[in-house]
Design a protein around this nucleic acid. Structure first.
Length: 605
RNA sequence: GCCGACGUAGCUCAAUCGGCAGAGCAGUCGCCUUGUAAGCGACAGGUUAUGGGUUCAAUUCCCAUCGUCGGCUCCA
């Protein structure tokens, strides 16, 4: 990757093109709806959007018309002209635009730019105009519409969006568009979107029989099919092995607990609305658990702890249920039942850095296993305004633990970005964003410091001085949930899993029914060796069986006919299409077992 | 939860203006006995998501509910 010198997106020509395209789009929309109120329209990752308050809902036909009009405007060689003016002058220009007036007020007071981002100093108020359109805007823009290629601009979709991102505000209509330097770039982007669709875990998950949803079971409650369950089993084995080596202990806890536990932990007031409602038995209210931590805390508290016992690392693939709002559900990525690669590490302050970095070390190990080469550690901290609301009200401990994390990351040479106001209610956290093979971003692992809940549970250990001390708790889930992890892996590998994860590792394809007995013999042998092998005994021609195995992305196809029966061999065809010819059965088993044992991404070690 | 679009066989999709609901794949059965990405034939498969309404007649038009999708919001 290119180092430092890389141009920031905000400074790029493309950014100005998109920003300017947003203005041109707004012009086209306002021409079509003179009574429209317009709000903001910034560039975003692959394009731009503009939010409008319109008298009626936009249809796909409207989008076509708007796009057509945009192209005409773009061909008009209109210059973008900036003018700095006073708040009163601006108010005069936008007197019929309530959202703009609100923005002007914000700019005048200072502290925020037109998108609501905090600013250090009071900004100038400026407008940009081109053709017949004027917008309150800080820029920058291209000099003229002639710098925007009309053929490299496309409107994508229209969606609802709240004014200023607040769900209590009015819902606006957001029109998304994309713009590029050239038609070729636009085409490449559209092609990439098509590719992403092919890898979509919802599509592949169905095709590869990994999981399914059923209306009668309920939204967000996946049913894992045998193929999916096999992948889960492999992931759990991996995690359990690694955690055993790293000094974790497995625990198991119930799916239900009394309300009191969540009152004590402090979760209930924060998360009641995303927990399944309580059920009452003999006058006692129970909740289905949305997380495992309170019960792990109880295990810690089950006996007296000495500093000699620490750190204590309690791990559980705990099954949790969260009532995610209906509109938030998304395939396997956002579900209501999930199984977390969860663990809680209880340690002293002195041990914190080592423990915290050991968790980061786990991430690195997993990145290597799963061939993840792009990631960002997002360090989420509190915001002062949220103390006593979103966050536990103890500024001293916030600052202290945040500093501990910062220190640990810096000492360990781990690069991270800091994001304010995104911490958990009980402490700062690291979220790990990773990018799949086609550059789609996912948030998987999480690593959270908890200074707030252990004292609520009265957790303590006796330190070397014989005094009681409260441990710190690190919540961590390097493999996220099975649901999200497998969703990611499906898209990352496009369904062609590494052999160790492949639900079926080898399919045995007899050429005629005469070879069936031998085929089953081979199957038995391979199964015994620990390879997930299956005979395809269907009444089909060999070609159809190969095609079928190819579509199922099965790593190894073992064709058996007269020659193979004779030689005690299999004809090995790889998933990548390579025909490797005859292999003695034992040799194939050795080859496959090596690839599996190494968890290699390749088909041959 | 909010805004919008969508919902036809297990899957992918047809059905003109409101006029007898259809195809491919998958499934079952039969024939073929096959050498590296689809052999052939037959059969079966549907309360057109659910519930109401308009109409002589509704997959088609209207309403409600449920679900999915694109976003927003949210993610302990």
């Amino acid at each position: 990757m290119a180092e430092a010198k890389q141009e920031r997106y905000e400074d790029s020509e493309l950014y100005r093109i998109r920003h300017s395209a947003a203005h041109v789009m707004a012009q086209a929309v306002i021409e079509a709806f003179p009574e429209a109120k317009y709000t903001i329209g910034p560039p975003v990752e692959n394009g731009f959007y503009y939010d409008f308050d319109l008298p009626r809902t936009l249809t796909p036909e409207d989008l076509k018309k708007i796009q057509k009009r945009m192209r005409k405007i773009l061909n008009g060689q209109h210059e973008f002209v900036k003018k700095v003016l006073s708040a009163d002058e601006a108010r005069q220009i936008f007197k019929d635009q309530p959202y703009k007036l609100e923005l002007i007020e914000g700019l005048e007071e200072g502290g925020f730019d037109e998108y609501g981002n905090p600013l250090d100093e009071k900004p100038d108020i400026s407008i940009y105009s081109h053709d017949s359109f004027v917008d309150l805007c800080r820029g920058p823009h291209v000099e003229s519409t002639s710098q925007i290629n009309p053929k490299a601009v496309k409107l994508m979709s229209v969606a609802g969006a709240y004014w200023r991102g607040d769900e209590n505000n009015k819902q606006l209509q957001r029109v998304y568009g994309t713009a590029w330097n050239s038609k070729e770039e636009l085409d490449a982007y559209l092609w990439q979107l098509e590719e992403a669709k092919k890898r979509d875990h919802r599509k592949l998950g169905k095709e590869l029989d990994i999981y399914t949803f059923d209306d009668e079971v309920g939204p967000g409650l996946p049913l894992w099919l045998p193929n999916g369950a096999t992948i889960i089993e492999e992931l759990e084995q991996l995690a359990k092995n690694i955690e055993r080596e790293a000094g974790y202990q497995q625990v198991r806890t119930p799916h239900l607990t009394k309300e009191d536990l969540f009152i004590r932990s402090g979760h209930l007031p924060y998360y009641a609305e995303s927990m399944y409602p309580p059920m009452e038995m003999e006058g006692v209210r129970y909740f289905i658990k949305p997380m495992n931590c309170p019960m792990h805390h109880k295990i810690f508290a089950a006996r007296q702890r000495s500093y000699r016992d620490l750190p204590i690392r309690l791990a559980e693939y705990g099954t949790c249920y969260r009532y995610e709002k209906s509109g938030e559900l998304f395939g396997l990525m956002r579900v209501r039942s999930m199984q977390m690669n969860d663990a809680h590490i209880y340690c002293s302050e002195e041990q914190f850095e080592e423990e915290f970095m050991a968790v980061i070390g786990l991430y690195m190990k997993y990145f290597e296993i799963f061939n993840i080469d792009k990631y960002v550690m997002r360090f989420s901290t509190h915001a002062k305004e949220g103390l006593g609301k979103k966050y536990i009200d103890n500024e001293r401990l916030w600052l202290k633990t945040e500093d501990m994390v910062r220190q640990a990351m810096e000492n360990g040479g781990v690069r991270y970005v800091e994001v304010a106001d995104e911490a958990a209610f009980y402490g700062p956290k690291i979220d790990v964003q990773v990018w799949s093979a086609i550059g789609k971003e996912f948030t998987l692992a999480t690593n959270q410091v908890d200074f707030a809940v252990p004292p609520k549970f009265d957790l303590k250990f006796i330190n070397a001085q014989g005094e009681e001390e409260i441990p710190l708790c690190i919540h961590r889930a390097p493999l996220s949930t099975h649901e999200r992890m497998i969703g990611f892996l499906i898209e990352h590998y496009a369904g062609a899993f590494p052999v160790w994860l492949a639900p079926i590792q080898a399919v045995i394809i007899p050429i005629t029914d005469d070879h069936l007995d031998y085929a089953f013999e081979v199957e038995k042998k391979l199964k015994k060796a620990g390879i997930r092998a299956e005979v395809n005994a269907r009444n089909e021609r060999m070609n159809a069986k190969i095609r079928n195995a190819q579509k199922q992305k099965i790593p190894y196809m073992l064709v058996v006919g007269d020659a193979e029966v004779e030689a005690g061999a299999v004809a090995l065809r790889m998933r990548d299409g390579e025909d490797r010819g005859a292999f003695p059965v034992d040799d194939f088993a050795t080859l496959a077992l090596k690839v599996i044992a190494e968890r290699s991404p390749a088909l041959e070690a």
